[in-house]
Design a protein around this nucleic acid. Structure first.
Lengths: 203, 203
DNA sequence: GTCCGCATGTAAGTAGTTACATGATTCA
DNA sequence: TGAATCATGTAACTACTTACATGCGGAC
C-alpha cells in the first residue's frame, strides 16, 4: 500500500499532524503493515491536500513548534474506500532477506547462519511479546477525543490485524526454533569458493 | 533484497540468460522471495557485468533468438557471500494490503469483505497445493548439468525455504478460515460516510 | 552541556515498474 | 490466423530512501 493511502487511513481515524502519522507507523497496529519516513509522509500530505482529499489547519502550541493538523475530507473517505476495494489477492508473497540467506545456507559459514537464526528468533520473540502485551486500538497516537470515540473497543479491525500478525509470526518462530538444529548442521558444508561448487564443476 | 543480488543468487547456481532468470523468479523456490520483470533484470545484468561480478557470453541457437548466457565470477561469489552476511534481523514486517483492508473492515460493505477473504483463502490454498506438490530444488530452470550437480537433493536451502513458506502460509490460511465468520459479522457495521463515524463526531 | 523529543520540510539519489519496440517459431 | 513462447532491451515514469537544514525545550 502506498504512503498516500496509508496516510489517508490514519487520518480516517481522526485528525493528525505529519509527525503523529509517523508515530502511528512506528507504534500501534499500523506498524504491522505501514511504513514511511518524513521524506515520504510530508510530500504525500502535500499531494493529498492538492487533491482535496485532506485539508490542513495550523495549530499554535505553547513551548512547542506549530503543528499542521490534517483532517480527512468526504472526498478523502470515498477515495480510501475505493482504494480498499481494489485490493488484489496476489502480492502477499513472503519477501524475506533471511529466507534468501537461508537458501544459500550450505555455502555460508556455520557460525554466521547460527547467529542470524538466533538473532531472528530473538526478534520474533520480542515482537510477539510486544504484540501480546499491548491492546491498543490504532488511535493511541491521536490526541483528539474523536479518535477514541471511533476506535474504542467496538471496532474489530485493529484486533484482527493484531491477531493475524501474532499467528503468522508465531508460525515463523516455531519453524525457526524447530529447524534451527538441522539448518545449522548442514550450513557451511559447501563453501562457495572452495572445491565442489558449481564454479569448479563448470571449469 | 535488490534485483542485482537476487540475479547473482540465481547465477551462483549455474549460468543463465536474463530470460531464464525471469523464469526462476516466477517458478521454483526463488519465487517465494524474489521478484522482478525484464525492466529490472536486464539493467541489473548490465551493471553486474560492468562491476565484474558476472560475465556474458553470446550463444547462438537454431530457430530461437540468440541468448546472452551469464556466468558468475569469483568476485561475484564473494560479493554474494558478503551481501548475505549483512542481512539484518529487522525488516521482515508483514506488509499486507489485505491486512490494511481488514483494519477498516467495519467501515466497508460486508459483501466486499467476504469476497476479499474468500479470494485470499483460495489464493493461499492454491499456493500451498503448488508448494507441497513440487519438490524442485531451485535450479529447475537451468539447462546446464552443473546446476543439477550442485542442487540435487544434497543442498538443504531450497527445502528450508519451501517448508518455511508452507508453515507461514498455512498459519495465515488457518487464521482466515477460523476468523472469517467473525470478521464478516462485524463488517459494514460502521459505514464511513454515514452516521456514527469520526466525520460526524468531529462536526 | 549534550543529547533526546518535538516539529516541518526539501533535495538528491536509488530502485523499481510499466509501456514500448522488435521479431521468429510453434501450437491450437 | 491468432495467440503464446522465446528472447533482449530502452525510455519514461513512479515511488521511496537518505541526507540535509533548522530550531526550541526539557531531561540527565
Amino acid at each position: 500500500m502506498d504512503v498516500k493511502t496509508t496516510c489517508l487511513g490514519v487520518l480516517a481515524l481522526g485528525p493528525a499532524s505529519g509527525y503523529e502519522i509517523r508515530k502511528a507507523f512506528e507504534e500501534g497496529p499500523f506498524s504491522h503493515f505501514a511504513e514511511g519516513g518524513y521524506g515520504s509522509i510530508y510530500p504525500a500530505l502535500t499531494k493529498l491536500t492538492k487533491e482535496g482529499l485532506i485539508d490542513g489547519r495550523k495549530e499554535e502550541q505553547a513551548k512547542r513548534p506549530d503543528k499542521n493538523i490534517y483532517h480527512i475530507t468526504e472526498a478523502g473517505r470515498q477515495k480510501l474506500v475505493s482504494s480498499l476495494e481494489t485490493v488484489q489477492p496476489a502480492e502477499d508473497k513472503i519477501k524475506s532477506d533471511l529466507l534468501f540467506m537461508l537458501f544459500f545456507a550450505d555455502f555460508l559459514p556455520r557460525e554466521h547462519i547460527a547467529a542470524a537464526i538466533d538473532a531472528r528468533i530473538g526478534w520474533y520473540r520480542e515482537k510477539l511479546a510486544h504484540m501480546r502485551g499491548c491492546m491498543e486500538t490504532g488511535a493511541a497516537h491521536l490526541s483528539q477525543p474523536v479518535a477514541g470515540a471511533m476506535c474504542s473497543g467496538a471496532t474489530s479491525g485493529p484486533h484482527i490485524v493484531r491477531d493475524f500478525g501474532i499467528a503468522v509470526y508465531q508460525a515463523a518462530l516455531d519453524f525457526l526454533e524447530q529447524e534451527r538444529g538441522a539448518i545449522v548442521a548442514s550450513a557451511g558444508t559447501k563453501p562457495m569458493t572452495a572445491t565442489g561448487t558449481a564454479q569448479d564443476a563448470a571449469e
